[in-house]
């Protein structure tokens, strides 16, 4: 009813009002997503669910259904396509991440083993790993002599993210590793890394990361963007951990939960938020 009155009064359908009244980014795309989700028209509703959408024909169809005339509203088609791209891209990203998470680490898979060895190489360039099963793994923060059981619920996603930060931002990851050996404020590098993957994964799953991903670019978020966000989280967490001055490692759970709340708050309160990762900026601990 309300929509109908607004439509008559402004002469614009809801989608058109959203695109013209909101700046591009999370504010607009989230509003479009909500509108599509609650639409009574099944084609529109479906657009809020699909992981893959051919956005140009989709926008043409929506314009036809909603009587949006391209000559009168020349901006609409492009704006709407960007929103669709982001909305379905986020869903696609989650599916990709979920598949990676469900892939269990397997010692029989040479690709998995290779990645694990690479991780060692990036973090410990000067020290040779004596044997595949070795207490040395605890030096980079795994729990015991074989890291494979530590990936657990995060599967290959956990390993891939540990490898991503150490291969792409090697200096930073070594710096964090060295901080992790702090006599009182130390932590297990790899285990904390896997726990941060879990924090990030939950935020993605609960759609909290839409704010960030809808703001960073006019395109669908990629796995690469997700991994970059992991690097941001790792760096921010380490800074946060030291600033909280925990008594010892047993406070990890409390500090992690507080950190998660802080990130969530950031993404909920201000819809213009971008969690910007700056690898060159000095680690402030």
């Amino acid at each position: 009813m309300w929509k109908w009155i607004l439509r008559k009064w402004t002469g614009k359908c809801e989608l058109l009002r959203i695109t013209s009244e909101n700046p591009k980014g999370a504010k607009r795309s989230k509003a479009i997503e909500r509108s599509l989700k609650h639409s009574n028209i099944s084609i529109l509703k479906q657009l809020s669910k699909d992981e893959i959408i051919d956005v140009i024909p989709a926008s043409e169809e929506v314009m036809k259904i909603k009587d949006v005339i391209a000559e009168i509203h020349p901006q609409f088609a492009y704006c709407f396509q960007v929103c669709l791209c982001q909305i379905c891209g986020y869903k696609r990203l989650f599916a990709e991440v979920e598949e990676m998470r469900k892939t269990q680490y397997s010692s029989e898979n040479p690709d998995h083993e290779e990645k694990l060895m690479q991780l060692w190489g990036f973090l410990m360039p000067d020290i040779k790993l004596e044997t595949r099963i070795s207490k040395q793994w605890t030096d980079i923060g795994f729990q015991g002599d074989d890291p494979k059981t530590d990936f657990r619920g995060m599967g290959m996603l956990g390993l891939n993210q540990l490898l991503y930060i150490s291969s792409k931002y090697t200096a930073l990851s070594r710096q964090i590793l060295s901080k992790s050996h702090h006599p009182t404020l130390g932590f297990s590098y790899a285990i904390v890394g896997i726990n941060l993957t879990s924090v990030l994964y939950e935020l993605l799953k609960k759609q909290t990361l839409r704010t960030h991903f809808y703001n960073i670019k006019d395109d669908k978020p990629s796995l690469h963007d997700f991994h970059e966000l992991y690097c941001y989280m790792f760096k921010e967490f380490v800074t946060f951990w030291f600033s909280e001055k925990p008594k010892d490692i047993m406070e990890f759970g409390r500090v992690r939960d507080k950190f998660r709340r802080k990130i969530k708050q950031k993404l909920k309160e201000d819809l213009t938020t971008i969690l910007k990762f700056d690898a060159d900026e000095e680690l402030a601990v």
Binding site: V192, Y201, M250, G253
Partner: peptide, 11 residues
């Protein structure tokens, strides 16, 4: 129980 990670500290 599908998203468990190694416990750093306690739960």
């Amino acid at each position: 129980i599908s998203h468990i990670t190694p416990t750093q500290g306690f739960n």
